[in-house]
Each structure stands twice: as C-alpha cells, then as structure tokens.
Design a protein around this nucleic acid. Structure first.
Lengths: 235, 235
DNA sequence: ATGGTAAATTGACTTTAATCAATTAGAAGT
DNA sequence: ACTTCTAATTGATTAAAGTCAATTTACCAT
C-alpha cells in the first residue's frame, strides 16, 4: 500500500497533497498486471475508474466506424489517465489498450470526486495538469501543419531525450515503430521512409530500435526552425 | 458595470459564481473597442490580463521564424481567453489579434488568481472548461488525419448550426474564408476547391459567404462517417 | 535451434493538398 | 461612380504522404 502511495505522489497531480488526502484518494486503489493487447475500457463506456501507469505502456485511441484508429496518446510510467472524467456521470472519450505489458493502478473516480470538491489543491493541480496537456495538444496540432514526417519524428526524439534528462544521445524507442508512427499521425511506410530521410539529412545512426544522435544542435536546427518555439521547449 | 457582470455571467466559466465573487473578479474589468488588425498581445509577452469577447472576433495564433502562421482558435461573443495563464509568472503561449472589430473586456489575471485560490467553484469551473477544450483539440487532431478538406469544412458547418440552436439551414460565414481556411488547417486555394467539391457531393448551395444546406442528414453522413463520434456531437 | 507470426522495409503507383501564377470579384474610401 | 486594395477563385504544376503489394527482418513460442 505504501508502494501505491509512492507511485501516486510521483505524479505531479498528487505531488503536493497532504498524506491524509493522499490516503483518502488511494484507499480503493488496486494495482493490476496486464498483458499486451488487454483492453481497459472502450470509448463510450461509463467511466468509473481512473488509472496510473506503474510500468508498461498504454495506448489511448479512438476509431471510426470503418475501423480507422487515431492515437490520442501513448502513456508510460507515472502518467495518469481517465481522471478528467471526474465530473458527474461521464463516459470515456477514448479507448485504452495495453500496448506493452505492465502494472496499472486503478482508482475509483468517486473518491477523486469527493476529494476534488473538498480540497482546493487537487482542483488547482488538476487544472494545472490539464492546461499543460491542452498546450501540448495545441502544439501537436501546429506541428501537423508546419512539420513534415521527418521533422515530427526528430521532434519526438528531442522531446524524448529532454524528458529523460540524461546526457546520453542514445534513444531506445519506447514502443514499436507501428505505434510510434500512429502516434505521430502517419502510416508505418511513411515512418520508415521519413526515418531514412532523417538519417540522410542529419547523420543520425539507426540500429533497429536504437537511435544514436550525434548532436542535439543538428537535430534541433532541423526541427525547430518550423516550430513557433525555440529549443529546448517544454514539450 | 452591470453590463460587464452580465457578459461575465454568460460565460460557463463564471455562470455559477455568487454575485460577491463575480464582483471581486470584475472590479478591474475594462471594455475596449478594438479595430480589425489590432494586436492584443504577442506570444511570449508576460501575461497580465485575460479577456472576454463581447463582440467581434479574435484570432489566436502562433508563428514560426519564417512567418508561417498557425491558427489556434478563432473566438467569438462570450468566449474567454488568456485565463489559463492564471498560474504564477506566465507568458502568453500564443498571439491574439482582432480578426473582426469589436469590444473586448480585459481583466487582470491577479484578481482571478486570488479568487481561484479562495473559491473552489472557480477552480472546478475552470477545470471543466479546460477539459472540454482539451477534448475539442483531441477531436480536431483526429479530424486532421481522418477527414479530408471538404469534410473538415462540412464539419465546421454542422458544428456551427448546432451551436446556434436555430433550425435555419442557412449559414453566414462568421469571418472571411482565408481565416476559416487557416482555422481548418488548409490553404485558401484548397478551401476554395474543397468547398466546390462539397457542393458537388452534397448539393449545398453557396452564395458568397452564405451557405444554404438542404438537410443536415446529407451533410452528417458525408462527414461523420469518418469520425469516431456519431452526429450530433458536442463539437 | 527452428518454425511461425507479426513488424518493418522497399517498390510502384495514386491521391491529396501545397505551391506558384494569373485573373476575377468584392469591399472600402474618396 | 471610380479607384484601389485585398479576397477569392481558377489553372497548371509540384511535392508529400497514402495505398497496395511484395519481401525481408525480427521476435516469440515450442
């Protein structure tokens, strides 16, 4: 149980909460091991739980009648999802599937709802987090019109290295290329060709799912020239 | 001053607030008439005010070094913007320009900040509003990959008629076609041709900036087949 | 180790939208 | 009404990504 509280308090959403509030929120938390392919919920299901990723990867997506999938997001360790459905009787606005096996903690929305109405810090934290996410989406939307396929891939690499805060210029793709392609809004074939072009244009080295960057400078000038923000951004 | 309070209370963000809180928030509100082309603030400026549109249209946008603009949103009567910068020392994440002359009310972020930390309902309202906006962006992102130019235009028409809640099947474009094209993420030339195609495909009638729809059915089956939501959606 | 399955790549081709250039239509101001 | 400037349309062409099909590669289970 301490373990769960620890995981919770690592998320910015809950970081600043008092131990007693944290306890309230997590009293009905359950960690579950899930295998790749497992569906957690489907777009339109009544929302009763929200989740925290302890390990593995989750794919949030929606699909049209004819089966075309769009990836909303791919979440990894520490990310929270489903918590925006805290209001009233709500349904999930997307489906969630385990993309890489791992442990997911589920928590009842009702507990969060209670805490939210009682404790202003939770509301403030959630507002802050949601605003950040909104900013990310706006930037993503910008990128879809100003950046080509190769640039979007390179942008992902840059953001990925910045997030990890390590000086290493080696990237190990966190999940397979098909999913990454979908996440970046392109076909696998396009991804493959765009990555090749990126290699030619910037001199990065590619070995399977390991990418070796030479310098961040080279990449950032390749990418960020067609973005409204300067490198390094808070992507 | 009553006038200002009225405008404020029409926004969902402030609708449920008590008169005394509303008063606190609006005590330093100033309505200003602005002409088309006027810049309210620029991406990167320190954020000190947020705004409510009383009339006219505001274009929120960002631009890359080479001058390419991306439209984040086009706001009209009743919309609030800039309020998400309520936290700490922040800078505007986009620029705002008057797209159609009108009256804009400016309010200091500091007043909102004070109210936000004191009154949980404001935080909750803002969270709700921001979550809705996030959902819209997610859907927009989906549309960019699943819908073609004609469908995106038709989708705009549908959402526009639904919002107005009138039975009339006549649409008067709220702002000029160049801006609408940019808002939908396409070039003016593409817009022009896509509108022509939409006319051929669905039999709508176009007279300058007036669009006459025959039925919503025809349009919605044309559009919503490549969307993950059924018509009518909450777009 | 190996056979089977899915991912990834590559090629050929099509579709869609962007771009460049020219013309026409419209609106605002004098 | 006329000038002027900008918006809107249309045409011709190019560029980018999607699609369809065929291989090759990588990985998992036995």
């Amino acid at each position: 149980m301490d373990d769960i509280i620890n995981t919770l308090s690592e998320a910015p959403l809950f970081a600043t909460l008092t131990p007693s509030v944290l306890n309230d929120i997590s009293k009905n938390a359950h960690p579950n091991a899930h295998k790749k392919g497992k569906i957690l919920f489907i777009h339109g299901d009544p929302a009763e739980h929200y989740y925290i990723v302890k390990s593995g990867h989750i794919k949030l997506f929606r699909e049209t009648v004819d089966g075309t999938q769009t990836i909303i997001d791919v979440l990894s360790q520490g990310n929270v999802f489903g918590h925006t459905l805290v209001f009233e009787e709500n349904t999930y606005p997307y489906s969630a599937e385990i993309a890489e096996s791992g442990i997911i903690i589920s928590l009842p929305l009702s507990d969060l709802r209670d805490a939210l109405y009682n404790d202003n810090t939770i509301a403030i934290n959630m507002l802050r987090a949601t605003t950040n996410r909104l900013r990310l989406r706006e930037k993503e939307l910008e990128h879809r019109s100003t950046q080509n396929a190769s640039q979007r891939i390179a942008c992902f690499f840059l953001r990925h290295t910045l997030q990890r805060k390590n000086d290493s210029l080696v990237i190990h793709l966190p999940y397979d290329k098909m999913l990454l392609a979908a996440h970046l809004g392109m076909q696998p074939e396009t991804f493959s060709r765009a990555l090749l072009k990126l290699k030619k244009d910037t001199g990065i080295r590619i070995e399977g799912s390991s990418i070796y960057l030479n310098t961040l400078d080279r990449l950032s000038s390749y990418v960020c020239s067609s973005c409204s923000e300067r490198f390094p951004c808070n992507g």
